[in-house]
């Protein structure tokens, strides 16, 4: 479903020989939950950007749901993103719109018939536990609630994978646990989740798969762990 094949990424304006990612390969199966960890600058966000085709690899190939980074057209990038849910640390909400308008916006701009929008929005807001705050503006909501609106927007079009770049980075511990609980529920309903995070405590508290990056290389992948142990013997 998602596949990185020997992916190397050097940003155009980076110093010569400096790659944000070098020779990264992994696969993610349908419905899987994967943490992406590693120190700042390790390349977590870069992997996610490659995944939603905001960036293209310098070499290697990224395959997502049948699309290949080698040949995807701009139009198809838009089509692909309609099937992804993307969430950031800074929520990215429109301040001049209510929670429901923010969620509806994602449907409006991809041409969803207006008649279908209210139902889908209500369902998504219920799913993230914010049905009662549908008409609140972002500044009337707590950080955790704002992030839930962002999740509702990401989920409203039934994505097959949810991509979250440090979704709890701006939240306190309690809100973090709430958001994480939400992510587990989303995953339990069949949506794959790929979440970048600094929060090692959170990662260790679960047995979800974890890919750890450092200096643009994969230094640990719990899916390979048994194999590594065998080789170490």
């Amino acid at each position: 479903m998602i596949r990185f094949n020997n992916v190397t990424k050097s940003y155009p304006r980076a110093a010569a020989g400096q790659s944000a990612l070098s020779n990264v390969s992994f696969r993610i199966a349908k419905g899987e939950f994967v943490f992406l960890t590693g120190p700042s600058g390790a390349g977590k966000s870069t992997i996610l950007k490659l995944l939603y085709m905001d960036e293209r690899p310098t070499s290697g190939e990224v395959r997502v749901s049948g699309y290949s980074s080698l040949e995807i057209k701009r139009r198809d990038v838009a089509k692909l993103r309609r099937r992804l849910g993307i969430v950031f640390q800074d929520f990215q909400l429109l301040e001049d719109r209510t929670a429901e308008a923010n969620v509806g916006f994602a449907l409006e701009v991809i041409g969803t018939p207006a008649a279908n929008i209210p139902n889908k929005v209500a369902r998504a807001l219920t799913q993230v536990g914010l049905a009662s705050k549908a008409t609140a503006f972002p500044k009337e909501l707590s950080g955790g609630e704002q992030q839930r609106v962002a999740f509702a927007r990401a989920l409203v079009n039934d994505p097959f994978v949810l991509i979250a770049d440090e979704p709890t980075g701006n939240l306190d511990e309690r809100a973090t646990r709430g958001i994480f609980q939400l992510l587990r529920e989303i995953n339990a309903s069949g949506t794959a989740v790929m979440m970048a995070t600094h929060d090692l405590q959170l990662v260790r508290s679960t047995d979800y798969r974890c890919i750890e990056l450092n200096h643009g290389e994969i230094v640990f992948d719990s899916a390979d762990a048994p194999k590594i142990e065998v080789e170490a013997d």
Partner: peptide, 8 residues
């Protein structure tokens, strides 16, 4: 945001 959610 439009780009992110797949507007052409």
């Amino acid at each position: 945001i439009m780009r992110l959610v797949g507007a052409t």
